[in-house]
Design a binder for these strands. Structure first.
Length: 247
DNA sequence: CACCAGGCCGTGC
DNA sequence: GCACGGCATGGT
């Protein structure tokens, strides 16, 4: 299967997993500690079966993306098999609010601090990411003290408007984007990420600083429609590829 | 010291 | 509509 678990779990679509010294990965999801070494381990766990989208044929998608052009072929061959994880709405929303003008390592650290401060300790030194209710009394001072910086008021606005997150499911993609952008600190890029990773909307095509380089250098004049019907997955391949590219 | 990181907001034109 | 500076923090 050659899944690239490092890229899937540590490459910027989730910030909840840690890699252990023995090479396994662990996280608290769905109220429990989850620990896997290979993707195959997830088949035994109904929660992870859904989380890793194991019912979808990623090998087929990968083949079709690879056939599209030489750049995607190079990207797919360099990156291996990716998957689009199914994360919950609130976790994805806060995660990608944290992501703006930030780097993956620091986002992961902030995610961890929010979990320790507002989440539950479900096992020894293992904390769940908080729910909106668990964060309802959070203050800007507290959040700034944790290191989220100028994103503190954005997080508070997301908590205040968390009911809005349930309305997004019923909306068409463009309307869903606009709905998420009603939350302060959510623009086009962050909304795209939330829709892909928190709502499994595969039409999303987030343009961050890396993807802007890819598009201007290799796809001048093109936009996300070129990559249909694999916008999100193609974007993930190109993002991983350019970010890990040497020289 | 500078510049950057899975950007967004407010302002000015 | 587009361009620009500011914004917290930590790494290089």
């Amino acid at each position: 299967m050659e899944e690239n678990l490092d890229e899937i779990l540590l490459g910027g679509q989730t910030f909840s997993w840690k890699k252990n010294d023995d090479g396994s990965f662990s996280s608290v999801l769905g109220g429990k500690v989850r620990r896997i070494t290979r993707l195959e381990d997830a088949y035994d766990d109904p929660f992870l079966y859904d989380y890793f989208d194991l019912g979808y044929d990623y090998e087929k998608a990968k083949r079709e993306i690879r056939e599209k052009d030489e750049i995607l072929k190079e990207a797919v061959d360099a990156v291996g098999t990716l998957r689009i994880l199914r994360q919950d709405h609130f976790t994805a929303t806060i995660s990608f609010i944290l992501s703006q003008n930030n780097n993956i390592k620091r986002i992961t650290g902030l995610y961890e601090r929010l979990s320790r401060r507002y989440g539950r300790e479900v096992d020894e030194d293992m904390y769940s990411f908080p729910t909106p209710d668990e964060m309802k009394d959070a203050t800007e001072e507290e959040l700034r003290a944790l290191g989220v910086g100028f994103r503190a008021p954005f997080i508070l606005d997301a908590i205040a408007k968390c009911a809005l997150l349930d309305e997004v499911d019923a909306l068409e993609f463009d309307q869903a984007m606009e709905k998420l952008k009603e939350i302060k600190g959510i623009g086009d890029k962050v909304a795209s990420c939330i829709l892909i990773f928190g709502y499994h909307r595969t039409e999303g095509f987030p343009m961050d600083v890396w993807m802007k380089k890819v598009m201007s250098e290799y796809y001048p004049g093109k936009d996300k429609s070129y990559f249909a019907p694999y916008e999100a997955l193609s974007q993930q391949y190109l993002f991983s590829w350019i970010r890990n590219k040497k020289e």
